[in-house]
């Protein structure tokens, strides 16, 4: 069944998503990671990602690196676009522009960071449904996105099962040590209570192995989303708990991606949303 979103529910979703994006960009400002704050980076790593190639070939990367006012204008425009889209959710041109600016920003940042992170670039896919004027296309794209989000977690679980890492004794111990080794190498570094508790988990191999199996089971539970919507609410809870645990254990928060769980919000939970279905569907 494809839920049919009405105008009001679409507006609510637009505001939610783009206000979140504005906070994501605000965090990037705070972390000195906007293009104008990068002090004209030198190295860039594109690997074989042709999208990265195309964006750099346009010369936008070179322009923002060599020209501070251009970089600053780009950053301010991107921030303003997120807010403007939230304030004027019916103007289709705004999410379209935000999507383009956001994708370019993520590609440039990942290139200069020399690692193709998924933590914010994935949000450019969340913008796609909002670029369509027709409610039918929006509903189709938003529903398609729900499967994509489920795929993200299911795929991560399947790869761990396929490669055997989930049942690899010592895997979790390695992950924790890998995360904590830099901090522990500093003579006067004082771990807080939570860090101490989590690091101590690596001293109990059986418990650490069980923690990994539980984590992968949480990821694997998203496979359910391919067959039913009945557990969507639980998947949001599982997803948030999963990320809280990975934040503490392996310092991977993916906090920016939490907004993706909006695709699992049951229809009835979105205030005043019509629960019609597109005629002629299952």
């Amino acid at each position: 069944m494809i839920p049919f979103y009405n105008d009001i529910s679409r507006i609510r979703l637009t505001r939610l998503v783009f206000v979140w994006l504005f906070f994501v960009i605000s965090y990037q400002w705070w972390a000195d990671l906007m293009l104008s704050q990068l002090e004209s980076p030198v190295l860039l790593r594109l690997d074989l990602d042709l999208t990265y190639w195309i964006i750099h070939l346009t010369g936008i990367g070179e322009l923002t690196r060599s020209n501070y006012p251009v970089a600053l204008t780009f950053d301010i425009t991107l921030s303003a676009l997120c807010l403007l889209t939230a304030f004027f959710p019916k103007r289709i041109v705004l999410p379209l522009l935000t999507g383009i600016f956001f994708l370019v920003y993520c590609v440039l940042l990942n290139s200069y960071q020399c690692w193709h992170y998924h933590n914010i670039i994935t949000l450019s896919l969340l913008i796609v449904p909002f670029c369509f004027k027709s409610l039918k296309t929006f509903s189709l794209a938003f529903t398609g996105l729900r499967y994509f989000v489920a795929f993200i977690y299911a795929s991560a679980a399947i790869w761990k099962i396929f490669r055997g890492s989930v049942f690899n004794s010592g895997q979790m111990r390695w992950l924790i040590e890998h995360n904590y080794v830099d901090r522990l190498a500093i003579d006067d570094y004082k771990m807080n209570f939570l860090e101490t508790a989590m690091f101590n988990l690596s001293n109990y191999p059986l418990l650490a192995d069980i923690a990994l199996i539980l984590g992968v089971s949480m990821e694997a539970s998203f496979i359910l989303a391919f067959f039913t919507r009945r557990f969507d609410y639980y998947l949001i809870v599982i997803g948030v708990i999963f990320h809280l645990i990975t934040t503490i254990l392996v310092d991977v928060s993916f906090l920016q991606l939490w907004i993706l769980f909006v695709v699992f919000i049951p229809m009835k939970q979105i205030e005043r949303m019509k629960t019609e279905t597109i005629s002629g569907v299952d």
């Binding site: 042709l50 999208t51 670039i121 994935t122 991560a156 761990k160 490669r163 010592g170 992950l175 392996v250």
Partner: peptide, 15 residues
């Protein structure tokens, strides 16, 4: 990986 076709296999290498 060719954006937006990502490889979602985080931390799956055996260690």
């Amino acid at each position: 990986e060719i954006t937006p076709f990502f490889l979602w296999a985080h931390y799956s290498d055996r260690q």
